[in-house]
Design a protein around this nucleic acid. Structure first.
Length: 424
RNA sequence: GCGGCCUUGGUGUAGAGGCAACACAGCAGAUUGUGGUUCUGUUGUCAGGGGUUCAAUUCCCCUAGGCCGCCCCA
């Protein structure tokens, strides 16, 4: 084989694209129900946008970005996530403002340079929403509910919502300090990664799965103990709304997401039906990001769903939500197939073919000079409801054979009556 | 970036240091102007490179890719 797709990328072939179409349709439907409008931004942005928003010490910025220089030496980066580009676009086009609630959604590819494995590719797809302009805890709850409704619309079950509050610019430094003080005495017993994290971003130590670190993490001060009054009441209200709406969730004090812009609420939806990469979606509030990127202070919430992970669950044989691949011969692709024998018939067939198409009737014919038998077979596989068979005799009569492929009935049907008779 | 497993026709699978097998799909024919059944024929040199050997697709090494775990995240 001469060429192969770049590592960590995949072709979505005709046999699989119907799954993607189904998911995208579900996303658009649910987003519309909640009054979100679509935004599309470029695949690449200036590198600065991401380093500023996501944070220099994060893994994404530190080692996962596809960054390159263009011909004029500008540093550009293939978007690793979509929140920062959406904020940028909103600021640039004045989409957000005081007393204005802006609700946007997106669907598209993202890029991160990571070691590929199940549920993790270098080009992957996310669908997500961003809401700007309100700090109402009910909105946090609504976004979570929207997320859940979308996943259940797609057909996913047995999902778990993990939720936490990481505080705000007022209380996070205090928590960081408290955590650092606690870790200072214990860090020497913890793993090498944690020692690194301790220096760069102590919060992320809480995320460590290393067994020898667990006991220290368990005893670490929880963020909930240190939240300021505002963050504390905000969090209580969010979970209060979730309780009232009968949403099942789990407060997880160790949920620290890998992007620095989050404030207050963070959440993740995980599925037990996935392997190590078990997060189907994740999101939270980021009240400081708009200002960080040059706008007026504007509260915001959002989430992103990992579409490959959704599809992994949907197409997993064990769960039977959708059959995996191999749907090339899905029935009903075309209404009528024009089978022709000879050059003259081909010419007439093509005229009729175009006439059918111009009337909005999907139709096709042979371009490979196949035998009639083979043309019938192709028509069958394309799911044609009718085949119109044109040969020399038919040209003389100006009337050809119309075969109903379901019933196998055949009748003579003159050229000029065909479309009226079929009511197409 | 680290560790483990894997890589055979279009697809899914056998196999053994020295004729590469099976199923399905595809194409053609049986039915010389007709599909979905049946039968027949046909499509590969075993990811790429190097080494061991009289001989490797089968053993060893490297590279690439896939999968699984760590890390991280969607």
């Amino acid at each position: 084989m001469q060429y192969a797709v770049p590592r960590g990328t995949k072709d979505i072939l005709p046999a699989d694209s119907f799954v993607w179409q189904k998911i995208e349709a579900a996303c658009r439907k649910i987003f519309a129900l909640y009054n979100y409008m679509e935004i599309r931004t470029p695949i690449f942005e200036s590198t600065e946008l991401f380093t500023r928003s996501i944070g220099k010490t994060t893994d994404i910025v530190g080692k996962e970005m596809y960054t390159f220089e263009d011909r004029k030496g500008r540093s550009l980066t293939l978007r690793p996530e979509e929140t920062a580009p959406v904020v940028r676009a909103c600021l640039e086009n004045n989409l957000i403002g005081p007393d204005l609630l802006t609700k946007l959604y997106y669907i598209g590819p993202m890029f991160r340079y990571e070691r590929p494995q199940a549920g993790r590719q270098r080009q992957f797809h996310q669908a997500g929403v961003e809401v700007f302009g309100s700090n109402d805890p009910l909105l946090d709850a609504e976004v979570i509910i929207l997320n859940l409704q979308l996943l259940s619309e797609i057909g996913l079950k047995d999902l778990e919502v993990d939720i936490n509050s990481v505080g705000c610019t007022k209380c996070r430094p205090a928590y960081r300090k408290k955590l650092s003080e606690y870790l200072k005495d214990n860090i020497k017993h913890m793993c090498a990664d944690c020692q690194e994290r301790f220096i760069n971003n102590p919060l992320r130590v809480l995320d460590c799965k290393e067994t020898k670190c667990q006991k220290y993490i368990e005893n670490a001060p929880a963020s909930s103990e240190v939240l300021c009054e505002e963050c504390k009441t905000h969090f209580e209200k969010v979970v209060g709304w979730l309780d009232g709406l009968m949403v099942r969730y789990k407060v997880n004090n160790r949920l620290v997401r890998g992007l620095d812009y989050y404030t207050k609420t963070t959440f993740e939806i995980v599925s037990s039906k996935l392997g190590a990469q078990n997060a189907v979606s994740g999101g939270g509030r980021y009240d400081g990001l708009v200002e960080e990127l040059g706008g007026k202070p504007t509260p915001a919430v959002g989430f992103a769903i990992g579409l490959e992970r959704v599809i992994e669950i949907m197409t997993n044989d064990k769960y039977q939500i959708l059959p995996a691949g191999r749907q090339v011969t899905n029935e009903g692709r075309i209404i009528i197939y024009f089978a022709t024998i000879g050059e003259e018939a081909k010419k007439i067939g093509f005229d009729m073919l175009q006439k059918a198409r111009s009337r909005g009737v999907s139709a096709d014919m042979d371009y490979l000079g196949k035998s009639l038998k083979a043309q019938m077979k192709v028509a069958d596989r394309a799911g044609a409801q009718y085949v119109y068979i044109i040969g020399d005799d038919e040209i003389k009569k100006q009337s050809a054979i119309l075969r109903n492929m379901q019933t196998s009935d055949q009748q003579d049907m003159s050229f000029d009556r065909l479309f009226d008779e079929l009511k197409i």
